[in-house]
């Protein structure tokens, strides 16, 4: 029976838990002020850009069609108004919780229990954006789940959306290893390509040495040179493939 690993250092333990059915704690990856402000900045930039392009295009189009200045100004007032008022709510309702800015930062609005919020909730949280532009940041800083006033009213949270990547899962594990060692090797293999070459080989060699110490039979027939130069590949061959040896 493996010992439970130490407390997972993943989430802010001060944040109140989100419970799913059977009272299972969902450690939702809550988005903080930084990523949320970045998403909002992207959205605002898009709004300004679209407003400018739309004004020019609309003016040219209506002028070509032959409408008078009054109607052009009317159209401009209406489109700008709808753009500013409707952008956030329309996108969040249509995509169930994302705006272009949120997509870019990989965020999503979810309900307080991790579910899909109702249309009314999307409306509420975006209608009070006027106020949150002023007081939102201090409110978010004070809240353990980084909620702004609109989130309190609508009962929503903003979370990071994790991408579905091909996870590297170890299939062969030295018998006396615990979960932290498994997690270490898995995270090394997942990130090996992002590491600098010298770091990659020095960490890799230490991990191979660990396998060598605990389960030498997994490393059979590996030449010293390949361990020296491509420890990641050696680890992959040894621990990912399911073979008859283990």
């Amino acid at each position: 029976m493996p010992q439970p690993a130490d407390a997972p250092p993943t989430q802010d333990s001060a944040a109140p838990a989100v419970l799913a059915i059977d009272n299972i704690v969902l450690n939702l990856p809550l988005a903080g002020i930084g990523s949320r402000a970045l998403a909002a900045a992207i959205d605002l930039a898009i709004i300004v850009l679209v407003a400018i392009v739309l004004s020019i295009a609309l003016t040219l189009f209506l002028a070509l069609v032959g409408l008078s200045g009054v109607w052009i100004v009317t159209a401009l007032i209406l489109t700008q108004f709808l753009l500013y008022m409707g952008y956030f709510a329309a996108f969040e309702i249509a995509t169930r919780g994302r705006t272009p800015g949120k997509m870019a930062v990989r965020l999503r609005t979810v309900g307080s229990a991790g579910g899909t919020p109702t249309t009314g909730a999307f409306l509420i949280r975006n209608l009070v954006r006027v106020i949150d532009l002023v007081v939102g940041v201090p409110v978010m800083a004070a809240d353990a789940r980084s909620r702004r006033l609109g989130d309190f009213l609508a009962g929503t949270l903003v979370v990071h959306e994790e991408r579905s990547e091909d996870e590297i899962v170890l299939a062969q594990i030295p018998p006396q290893w615990n979960a932290r060692q498994v997690a270490l090797v898995e995270s090394y293999l997942r990130r090996a390509e992002e590491l600098e070459a010298s770091e990659r080989s020095s960490i890799g060699r230490r991990l191979v040495a660990m396998v060598q110490r605990d389960a030498p039979h997994l490393l059979s027939a590996e030449t010293a040179t390949s361990i020296e130069h491509e420890p990641a590949a050696v680890l992959r061959r040894a621990l990912l493939a399911v073979s008859g040896e283990g």
Binding site: A5, L26, T116, T118, A121, E162, A179, R180, V182
Partner: peptide, 27 residues
């Protein structure tokens, strides 16, 4: 609780969050 931070725990975290979002409607 047992295999914290492993790839499997990460995958299950993602599946649990995604499943909750799609299967549960707030209120």
């Amino acid at each position: 609780s047992r295999y914290a931070d492993t790839s499997t725990a990460r995958r299950l975290q993602r599946l649990a969050a995604l499943g909750t979002r799609l299967l549960q409607r707030d209120h």
